[in-house]
Nucleic acid binder design. Structure first.
Length: 192
DNA sequence: CGGCCGATCCACT
DNA sequence: GTGGATCGGCCGA
């Protein structure tokens, strides 16, 4: 198994990390169910200077506290009162960078993902969206703050090659309130 | 303490 | 393309 090393998450450039996460495997083992998928869409949230980030202007609350911990752990929060969104915390302690995982392609445990998402029949669109993939993978607030090295969630590099030219770049979704920062090219996608 | 609204998704039209 | 679901965080009074 080739777990991504801690050094991967401690780098300064969270935008680069978001790009590099494409093609990596997100794996969960929650409630006795093993599921995995290839990361196909990410967004970078660049800390205290990024108006779209929960940690903009060094805002520090019970909700986003985990963003200020050392990279390599999960930041999960409830969005719109009904969806759990999964982020990977990056950079050193007290630097609140994070990467939102917006899409995965299911690989292992697909039948269980269908059950979790109430999609017994159409196996398509199980996990193409930040709220949907957490449901498919079984992620909820219990995983907020967990390490990606010794717990129910991990990221592996299985040496899937992603060519730079396959990567689509765009602005982030749902962050119009962030004014000029809403236009930053911090969203990355691949078609698999 | 009240009210607004969000890093979304789905069912409808 | 639009609106409803649904609730915790956040801000202002």
């Amino acid at each position: 198994m080739s777990l991504l090393p801690l050094s991967f998450y401690l780098r300064n450039d969270v935008v680069e990390i978001a790009r590099d996460l494409l093609g990596k495997y997100l794996i969960t083992n929650i409630d006795g169910v093993y599921t995995s998928g290839i990361i196909t869409e990410t967004e970078a949230y660049a800390g205290i200077s990024d108006r779209a980030s929960h940690a903009f202007n060094n805002r520090r609350t019970a909700r986003n506290e985990i963003m200020y911990s050392k990279g390599g752990c999960a930041y999960v929060y409830l969005c719109y009162g009904m969806h759990y969104l999964f982020n990977i915390v990056t950079n050193e302690i007290d630097i609140p960078h994070a990467v939102l995982i917006r899409g995965i392609k299911p690989v292992e445990g697909i039948e269980q993902m269908k059950v979790r998402t109430n999609k017994i029949h159409n196996s398509k669109n199980l996990s193409n969206g930040p709220g949907k993939l957490t449901k498919a993978l079984g992620i909820d607030m219990k995983q907020n703050g967990v390490s990606l090295f010794n717990s129910s969630i991990k990221i592996e590099d299985r040496k899937l090659k992603i060519n730079a030219k396959e990567i689509k770049v765009g602005k982030r979704i749902g962050v119009d309130y962030a004014k000029e920062d809403a236009l930053l090219p911090y969203r990355f996608m691949i078609e698999i």
